[in-house]
Simulated assay, not measured.
Amino acid sequence: MKHIDAVTRTELEAAAFRRLLEHLRQRTDVQNIDLMNLAGFCRNCLSNWLKDAADERGVSLSKDESRTYVYGMPYEEWKERHQREATATQLKAFEESKPSH
């Protein structure tokens, strides 16, 4: 971004990330496997990246805490409420796209 200081850039990026999370929390119909097949990342990836960033900065954040932050609820609860069994088509697409993940 041109002529934007580092602090403002970080604030804008953080706002965009929070908006992405809110969007994904609202779109529970979009399964993680669909995200992986289409974009090469999913909600779990986002939570792992958040934990990696925390680890790099010496911030204590567990895997469960990062997933709860991304999902807006404990991961097991999200899975129970929203995750469907992957179809054969979804699994085939995942295997075919795996090298790009």
Rank of each mutant, 00 (worst) to 15 (best):
T28H: 07
L61T: 05
T68D: 13
E22N: 11
W78C: 14
D34R: 13
T28V: 08
D64L: 10
E96D: 14
F41P: 09
N48L: 15
Q83G: 02
F94H: 12
Y71M: 15
A93Q: 15
R57Q: 12
R9K: 11
E65D: 11
A14Q: 15
N37I: 00
D55Y: 04
E13G: 05
E11C: 04
L12A: 08
C42I: 00
E13A: 06
D29E: 15
Y71E: 13
N32H: 06
I33Y: 09
F94A: 14
W49F: 14
Y69L: 09
L35P: 08
V70P: 01
V7S: 10
R67Q: 15
L24H: 08
A54N: 02
C42G: 10
Q31M: 05
A14H: 10
M36D: 10
A54S: 00
K79T: 11
N37R: 03
S60T: 06
L12Q: 11
L46I: 12
E77R: 13
W49D: 12
K92D: 08
H101K: 14
F17K: 01
E77V: 08
S97K: 14
L91M: 11
Y75G: 05
E11S: 05
L38N: 06
M1F: 09
A39Q: 10
D34E: 15
T10L: 13
E65S: 10
